[in-house]
């Protein structure tokens, strides 16, 4: 165990508190687990913790939703998913709750959010990020979403990304 009492240096996260040790684990795993046979043991050794404590804390953070999933995270761009289309939809307010959930559950939609309209400049209230290997691939998927929304959608557009001008990584600093 480290000498830091968990009461200190607490961080608010989704209404939950991460204590100092949780926070050390978050910081140490943000860059990824080491590719050794016992990566959590290596992490525990690095932090001066028991591996059982590390595993229990990671499981607890996952239970609380601080950790969404544990993954070998693919680099979609390097794998050929170079087209990233932000599809935007003008969906009936009465149906957006039900339809948004259906769109968000589609496997090829990586993010799906309701946002406010700004009439007359901006009439779209549903945003769904669609990834594909080509524009045709994205268009096919967008057509499927249009089919799902049917008459409850008054219009849509797809905004393709042209350049990433800034994208910063780590959310929590040590």
């Amino acid at each position: 165990m480290t000498g830091n009492p968990p009461d200190f240096d607490m961080m608010q996260q989704d209404g939950q508190l991460l204590d100092a040790i949780d926070r050390q684990i978050v910081v140490a795993t943000q860059a990824g687990l080491p590719l050794v046979a016992a990566p959590y043991d290596a992490l525990a050794g690095q932090l001066g913790l028991d591996v059982e404590d590390v595993l229990a804390r990671v499981a607890a953070m996952q239970e609380r939703g601080v950790i969404r999933r544990i993954a070998a995270v693919p680099n979609h761009y390097a794998l050929g998913y170079t087209e990233n289309g932000m599809s935007v939809w003008d969906v009936s307010d009465a149906r957006i709750s039900e339809l948004g959930q259906q769109v968000g559950a589609l496997q090829y939609v990586s993010h799906c959010y309701q946002r406010p309209r700004h009439l007359p400049l901006w009439s779209y209230n549903l945003f769904a990020m669609v990834h594909g290997r080509s524009r045709e691939d994205v268009e096919t998927k967008v057509t499927a979403i249009a089919g799902l929304l049917g008459e409850h959608c008054r219009g849509h557009e797809v905004l393709y990304s042209k350049r990433i001008l800034k994208k910063t990584g780590l959310r929590i600093k040590g």
Binding site: M11, Q12, Q13, D14, V26, T29, Q30, A31, G32, L33, L35, V36, A37, P39, V58, M61, Q62, G65, V66, I67, R68, R69, I70, A71, A72, V73, P74, N75, A78, L79, R171, I172
Partner: peptide, 26 residues
């Protein structure tokens, strides 16, 4: 498994292995 994941990581096809954190809503 380790060799293959290491190779995927070296080639940039896996960006990292580990927990994916929810965005901070604080």
């Amino acid at each position: 498994v380790i060799e293959t994941l290491a190779s995927l990581q070296q080639r940039g096809l896996i960006s990292r292995i580990g927990p994916v954190f929810a965005p901070r809503r604080a």
